[in-house]
């Protein structure tokens, strides 16, 4: 409904924007966002991560940045730098989330729609992803969203309406029909607001028992593939449940090596790497 058809300032600093969406909650939007960001960084791209899940921000915890703070600069809010090393071949990662702006991690953000919309607008216009130096342009901005198709989604769709840098959306689902039913709604939302769908990722597909190495399909299997073939979407891949990933996230503070190094050696890295290659290929053409 905004009457200006200008692109938010933020997008001038970013080459590609990717949204991570799912109608269902708890399917792993934030963990897929984290993994895609880590993978892109390992491949040498500079990544920004924006968390627009305002009432339940998980990304600060995922990146082990719960205690860090956002600073104000002349150009706007400076996102928290998760990783930055000019000498290493890896790209930088920076993060912006409402979780970084509130002081007490236990307190709730009880906001109705208009306030959430205003916050997202501010995230889009007031965050200085780069220090103004155009050579440091972000290669990718990954936007993590809350479940549903409501205020936050309408707001981000309005903000990105004229953005040419928008690559599209990664749709995350789990295999059960209960989840894919909600995800179908999200896909219809994407069609209505003209978001390209980069493809569907099936998360939590199968669990490899650490005792006997037998694979059990806790939330069944194949739902994501069936969904993408019935709607003629690209199926990007299946990510199995890996308890070591949860452990890695939760215990990163006490660990000596960085999250990036640990992730590079994780069993999930090759799987997500393939998914990310599919996304990169799309840009290549």
């Amino acid at each position: 409904m905004s009457t200006t058809n200008t692109v938010p300032k933020l997008l001038a600093q970013v080459k590609h924007v990717v949204l991570v969406l799912s109608g269902k909650g708890g399917v792993g939007k934030s963990s897929v966002t984290t993994q895609v960001a880590l993978t892109l960084s390992l491949k040498g791209y500079n990544v920004g991560v924006l968390d627009i899940d305002l009432t339940g921000p998980s990304l600060p915890r995922m990146f082990g940045a719960e205690t860090k703070q956002v600073h104000q600069s002349a150009n706007g809010w400076v996102p928290v730098s998760i990783y930055h090393d000019d000498k290493s071949p890896f790209g930088s990662i920076s993060l912006m989330s409402l979780g970084l702006l509130i002081s007490d991690r236990g307190s709730s953000i009880v906001w109705r729609g208009p306030k959430k919309t205003a916050m997202i607008r501010q995230f889009m216009s007031d965050v200085a992803w780069t220090s103004g130096n155009s050579s440091e342009m972000l290669d990718y901005l990954i936007i993590d969203t809350p479940p549903g198709t409501s205020d936050e989604h309408i707001a981000i769709a309005e903000e990105l309406r004229y953005a040419t840098a928008l690559d599209g959306a990664i749709i995350v689902t789990t295999p059960q029909q209960v989840a894919t039913a909600d995800v179908r709604k999200e896909i219809n939302f994407c069609k209505k607001v003209n978001f390209d769908i980069l493809g569907v990722v099936e998360n939590m597909s199968g669990f490899i028992c650490p005792h006997c190495a037998d694979c059990t399909d806790i939330f069944l299997r194949g739902g994501g593939k069936a969904l993408s073939s019935s709607l003629d979407l690209k199926f990007l891949g299946e990510i199995p449940i890996d308890p070591t990933f949860v452990e890695m996230i939760e215990l990163q503070k006490s660990s000596e090596s960085s999250l990036l190094d640990q992730y590079q050696n994780s069993k999930l890295y090759p799987i997500v790497s393939q998914i990310v290659d599919e996304i990169l290929n799309k840009d290549g053409k």
């Binding site: 109705r112 198709t149 409501s150 205020d151 309408i154 896909i187 219809n188 939302f189």
Partner: peptide, 9 residues
């Protein structure tokens, strides 16, 4: 059943 309910608060 697949219709998206895109409603504000």
């Amino acid at each position: 059943p697949d219709a998206a309910i895109i409603w504000r608060g």
